[in-house]
Every structure is written in structure tokens, then in C-alpha cells.
Design a protein around this nucleic acid. Structure first.
Lengths: 198, 198
DNA sequence: GTCTATAGTGCGATAGAC
DNA sequence: GTCTATCGCACTATAGAC
């Protein structure tokens, strides 16, 4: 690395450098989504970006770093939108907002969806699955406090199966663009909010 | 291929040949489950089986063929067990039997689970996602006819979200062996059978 | 800041001895 | 039926010119 300025935080970067990094993350998301984790080779990334392999490795220390950055970018966009929707809704409507905004976001960004799936399956081991259902479980608990306790208190399982239902609806939409995700979201919300007998 | 007897169907095979094929499918399932599709290299398969790469390719025409055979083996075991459980139950209990037996089977065979996930993600494009929810949708329709029509008739969506819930429960069990899948299965069954307002 | 050129590795697959 | 040996390919990453 001849002239590269090494800073501990990446906040100060050349404008062109930031643009290149963004472009590289973008094409990486496309590539992973279209051809899978393994299909996103350094050569493929470089080709889509219109530069050479070596140039890619100038902007990122390794291929893994490119993929990691792309993944975090995509995940960040998701939690930002869902977080905003949840914050906007009242406590009693927060779980519904969670379900609807997550399905909505992934419907709008199919490639992001595939990237997230790929990263989950080939997760580099350091991710806790509880991170997936705990946020929703917390929302469910808050909603419970707002509208009264439910008969069934296993919030963990409820959150897990709700998350799974959301995933399945998104996956179906990926395969069939005509699938009505809004109706499916309503269906899930109805299931979640329906009190069940003890 | 010097001496290999080429028959159109693989029914007639040497005993040792059948044993080797089984062994190779077994180690491939383990390998794919533990290290992912990409991690199951020809060399790795050969090493675990105690033979060389070339020997593996004597029994199968290519690496892809080994993986395909292993996948079909695993999938066959699943549909066999679930099919038997569904056939044993009455029409009204068939959806419950489907959910419980599928969760049960995947709990008993975690590696099979990972293999199936891997194959779904890196599916070689020729698989219809409807194959996943259609069987359950049919069971739900039959149950509807047995115990009376439901208020909500979108069986496709109900089947999709039920399948997703099953997947999520299985995935959670994979990450946390102490997770109570039987209770979760009951939870899913209750959701599916609860009549919901129109 | 991007290039060419290449080192070094691991892969799937084949040929031919035994 | 399994072996050794090897080919050709694609990959990540590095070195150094411009």
C-alpha cells in the first residue's frame, strides 16, 4: 500500500474514494444477490465496477471486507427503516408496524433480501440468532403491557414464528412478484394479535 | 472409466458399490452441514471417506452428482416420515401432524436440516417454491372440509406463514439445543387452527 | 489512483499404473 | 476398485510501473 492514508476511523475520505466504496458495495450486493456468495469473486466485482481486481483491493483490504461492508450497509438500511416505523407507531401498534415495515422494505429491495439470506446462511459464526427475535419479543412485551396481558406468555416463541412467517412471505414474493405481501402482512399481524386459549 | 458396468438404472450395483455410495452421501451431508456447500470440496469428501478424489469420481460422475444424491437422500427421508405421519392422522388432524412431524424430524436430524437449507439457498434454479407450501395448503383445505369452512380462506398464505414458522423454530433449535420445539409446535398448531375474524 | 504482471493456492477432473 | 500424478482453471493477494 504505497500512498494510502491509514486512519483509524474511515470518516475522512476522499470524495472519489467514498464514491468508489459506495459503488463497490452496490455492485457486491447485486453480485451476491444474483450469483450467491461464492459467485461474487473479486474479478466479478471489479468487472462490474469497471476497474481491475487490484483497484478493488486498493479500496478494501480484502474481498471479505468488501462483502462485509456491503452486508452491513444493507442491514443498516433495514434496521433504520423498521426502527423508524416502530418508533412512529404507538406501543400497541409497534409489533404490527414491525411486521409491515419489514415486509415492505424487503419487498422494495429484493436484492437486499437475497444478500441478507446469503449472509445468514454463510454467517461467519459470530452472530447470535437471538438478535433476530429479541427486538420483536420486546415490542410484544411492551404491547402486552399497553393492551393487557395475553393468555399465552411465551413471547420468545411468538417472536420466532412471527419472524419466520415474515421471512417466508418475503421469500414467496421473491419467487412470485405478483404475490400480495400487504395482505399476507395483515394475515401475520392478525395471527400475532389474536388471543389464544391457554 | 475402464471396467465400470454402465446400466441405465442404478438398481443393480455391487454390494460394495452400494455401500460406498451410501458412505459418500453420508459424509457429504456431514460436510455440507458443517462447512457449507462451498466447504464440501471433492478432496474433503474423499478424505472423510478415507479414499482419494479419483476414487470418489469413480462412484459418481462429478462432485455435483454426489451433492445432488446426498440432498435427495435427505429430502426423501423427510417426506417419507412426514407423509407417514400425515397419512396416519385423520383429515382434521393432518395439518397438526404435518407441523409436528416435520419439526420432530428436523430436530432429530440437525445435519439434514442444514443440508436442506444449504440446498435451498444454492438451489440450482430448477425448484418451484410452491412445492413447499402446496402440500400443506392441500391438507388445510381437506381439514376445512372436515371441520367446516374457516372465516379466512387464503390457504396459500396460511400455508406459507406456517411453513416459515416451522423453519424458524427448527433454526432456533439448531442454535439452542435446549429450545422446547414440542411446545413451539403446539404454538404453531394453535395459531393455524384458531379461527380468525373476517 | 489505477494499471499490468505474477505469485501462490485450491479446485474439479482425467490418464494410466496396479 | 483404488491408487499416483498431473493438467488446466479460477481464485485472492501482492509488487511495482505509471
Amino acid at each position: 500500500m504505497p500512498t494510502r492514508p491509514r486512519r483509524s476511523d474511515d470518516r475522512e475520505l476522499t470524495l472519489t474514494e467514498r464514491a468508489r466504496r459506495s459503488q463497490l458495495m452496490e455492485v457486491t450486493v447485486e453480485l451476491v444477490a444474483d450469483r450467491g456468495y461464492a459467485g461474487a469473486s473479486l474479478a466479478a466485482i471489479a468487472e462490474r465496477a469497471g476497474i481491475t481486481k487490484a483497484a478493488v483491493l486498493y479500496h478494501f483490504p480484502s474481498k471479505a471486507a468488501v462483502v462485509r461492508a456491503a452486508h452491513e450497509h444493507v442491514l443498516g438500511a433495514l434496521v433504520e427503516e423498521v426502527g423508524a416505523a416502530v418508533a412512529e407507531a404507538g406501543p400497541d401498534q409497534a409489533p404490527a408496524a414491525y411486521v409491515r415495515s419489514m415486509i415492505g422494505h424487503l419487498r422494495e429491495h429484493p436484492r437486499h433480501t437475497r444478500m441478507i439470506i446469503e449472509a445468514m446462511v454463510h454467517g461467519d459464526a459470530d452472530h447470535d440468532p437471538a438478535d433476530r427475535w429479541r427486538p420483536l419479543a420486546d415490542l410484544l412485551r411492551a404491547a402486552e403491557n399497553a393492551i393487557g396481558p395475553r393468555t399465552d406468555a411465551d413471547l420468545r416463541t411468538l417472536a420466532i414464528i412471527t419472524g419466520g412467517a415474515v421471512d417466508a412471505v418475503v421469500a414467496e414474493r421473491l419467487a412470485d412478484p405478483d404475490y400480495d405481501t400487504a395482505a399476507a402482512a395483515d394475515h401475520i399481524v392478525a395471527l400475532v394479535y389474536t388471543p389464544r386459549p391457554a
